[in-house]
């Protein structure tokens, strides 16, 4: 009885557009749903450092190296910020990382694709950070206060990454024949995986409906996907690039770019762990964590010693 009343008040608050704060009452399922979503997001930030870290050492100019390094550092900052936000719900970073490392938790499947050429650094910034940005701008409207505030800060940087990525692609498109081919090839490989970043169609998305009702998500997968496509297609055309979708066409009435069939079979397989980089990403994350254990132990032992000395 008590719970039912609280649930009604909770829902009323959300419907009125108020934010839920850490100390507020919330249904257990709301808390769990948020921890799942925020930790997935945090994991995506830190796993996402790997495919881009793969190119820092090979960045072709001092300026690009500075930008690439700063970008990957931003992503680490996003991860830290999101883990802290998730901790306000009572989950510890240690247990969240454990779930990532033993393969129980998910991260964005996009990072299970490899970065093969320098143009991929452009494509990832332009498309992957672009898609992330569209998603995250909408998440500013999420009902959980700490998550919403994290998004405000992170979106500013994602917009920056998106621009920098596009600039790399633009520079390549202005360059030699070889560079142009490199840019088109990267677009060919990253386009569909980026489209898939928004997740399955709302009709097939197991968490979508409840997440929308509780205001965890502010907008459905399909509408976000459409936003991204309509934003990105003209950017590709402006650089003389071809979107690898023969069915793509502009709808004069709706002013939207309509797109072809997404290969959901590939999507679900990559999620299941069958992507070309799944194993390597988890191996690298685990290696970093395991090799760092003695360092964390030393820091903890030293902190304890200092504390007992003071006391």
């Amino acid at each position: 009885m008590e719970d039912l009343k609280r649930l009604e008040e909770f829902q009323a608050k959300i419907d009125a557009g108020e934010k839920i704060e850490p100390k507020d009452w919330m249904p257990d399922a709301y808390r769990k749903n948020l921890i799942r979503m925020m930790s997935q997001h945090a994991h995506s930030e830190i796993v996402g450092m790997l495919p881009e870290g793969n190119w820092i050492q090979r960045a072709p100019s001092l300026r690009r190296k500075l930008i690439a390094t700063a970008k990957v550092q931003d992503e680490a900052g996003h991860g830290l910020y999101l883990y802290s936000a998730a901790e306000t719900l009572g989950a510890s970073r240690e247990e969240l990382l454990e779930a990532l490392h033993n393969g129980k938790a998910k991260y964005s499947s996009i990072f299970n694709y490899p970065t093969l050429t320098w143009a991929d650094m452009g494509a990832v910034g332009w498309l992957v950070d672009g898609a992330a940005m569209v998603n995250q701008v909408s998440l500013i409207g999420t009902s959980y206060g700490p998550y919403s505030r994290a998004m405000v800060r992170i979106c500013r940087e994602e917009a920056f990454h998106n621009r920098q990525g596009y600039e790399i692609i633009a520079e390549l498109c202005n360059g030699t024949e070889e560079q142009k081919e490199m840019a088109q090839d990267a677009l060919n490989r990253w386009w569909w995986p980026s489209i898939m970043m928004f997740g399955p169609s709302d009709a097939d998305s197991p968490h979508s409906e409840q997440a929308l009702k509780w205001g965890i998500k502010a907008e459905g997968n399909d509408s976000l996907r459409q936003k991204f496509i309509t934003m990105t297609v003209p950017q590709a055309h402006a650089r003389g690039l071809t979107i690898p979708d023969p069915d793509l066409k502009y709808n004069e009435e709706t002013k939207q770019w309509e797109f072809g069939e997404v290969d959901w079979d590939e999507f679900f397989n990559v999620i299941k762990g069958n992507g070309i980089m799944n194993r390597k990403r988890l191996k690298d994350r685990n290696a970093a964590h395991d090799n760092g254990k003695w360092v964390r132990d030393a820091a903890a032992a030293y902190a304890l010693k200092k504390k007992t000395k003071v006391a």
């Binding site: 450092m49 050492q57 500075l66 680490a76 991860g79 970093a288 360092v295």
Partner: peptide, 22 residues
């Protein structure tokens, strides 16, 4: 230092070492 980016013992060190590299 940049080789360590994403491979640090804790996230705070990924940030610190990358910052020094930068």
């Amino acid at each position: 230092l940049s080789e360590l980016c994403g491979h640090g013992p804790i996230l705070e060190e990924d940030i610190a070492l990358t910052n020094i590299s930068l």
